[in-house]
Amino acid sequence: MKIAVIGGTGLIGSQVVEILNSAGHEAVPHSQSTGADVISGAGLDAAVAGADVVVNLTNSPTFDAASPAFFRTSMEQLLEAARKAGVGHFVILSIVGVDQVPELDYYRAKTLQEEDLEAGGIPYSIVRATQFMEFVDAVLSWTADDDTVRLPATPIQPIAAGDVAQSVADVAAGAPLNGVRHVAGPEVFPLDELGRITLAHASDGRTVVTDPAAGMFGAVQGDVLTNTNAQLAPTRYSDWLARRG
């Protein structure tokens, strides 16, 4: 099976390509660096030519009010190229609870991306994943100073990027879901507690202060970013931290 992985050189995309090729598929990575521009459309027809499946793993360069325009334009360009090429399956990666946090521009943008795919006329699959373990350090940095890190107690169910990539690859190699598969890490933590665990592992002496309004996740209500009924990935956060060193 030939699979065009758009955004195939990034954190998830590069692993998806490796997994699919190891399984005997022909997975080809495409990105702006290879000449595939999802905003202008340049190089997209060539990128998807002959592909049975398109996996779109591109991401907005910002999380702000500019992100909806990125996802709307990129999906329009990719769907048009895929329709012309006769692609039979289109896959995107989204976020667990994405349609439950309208206060966040980026989440609204990802919801629009899902809606565009559903209306795009191509058999499709959406993989919704929980928050990546690899992004926890960045989340801490948003509200940190020399002495403290301010975090809300928002429930988070962290998943390793490698487990996300495996789920995306499995879906891409299968029949279209024409729906959503939810994947999540095996454990749920309050974000402030996850911050304490992360800092302790790094022997970082800063104090985590619980602040319900701190950072992007302060806008999240309840436990909408978790899903214990999802397909649970195997990697626990403590094991991921130990491997990272």
Results as ranks from 00 to 15, higher is better:
V139N: 04
L225D: 03
Y107E: 04
R128N: 04
V28K: 14
T58R: 09
E76L: 03
T235Y: 05
F70E: 04
S167H: 12
T148K: 08
G97I: 10
V53N: 03
S94F: 08
A65F: 01
Y237N: 02
R196P: 05
G195D: 07
D204I: 11
F70M: 09
R244F: 09
L225E: 09
A153F: 04
P68W: 05
F71G: 13
I19M: 07
I3D: 04
A109C: 06
M133W: 11
T62Q: 14
A153K: 14
G121L: 03
L57V: 02
I39W: 10
A173W: 03
D192H: 13
A129F: 00
A66W: 03
T148E: 08
V208G: 08
D52I: 02
L112P: 00
V16M: 09
A184T: 09
A109K: 03
A85F: 02
V188E: 10
L78N: 06
Q221Y: 12
T198K: 12
R236T: 15
D52A: 15
D45C: 05
P123W: 15
Q113S: 15
D147T: 13
A51G: 11
N21Y: 05
D147H: 11
P158A: 05
D163H: 06
T111C: 06
Q221T: 13
V48T: 12
A202L: 09
G10P: 07
N21V: 07
A230I: 03
S238D: 15
D146A: 15
L151N: 01
A47H: 05
D204W: 08
N178V: 06
G43P: 01
V139Y: 13
L20E: 10
D137R: 07
P29Y: 12
S94V: 11
A82T: 01
F90Y: 14
T9V: 10
P68L: 11
A66E: 13
L20P: 05
T235E: 14
I12N: 08
S94I: 04
P176F: 14
L191S: 08
A214T: 05
M216D: 02
D52E: 15
P158D: 07
E26R: 13
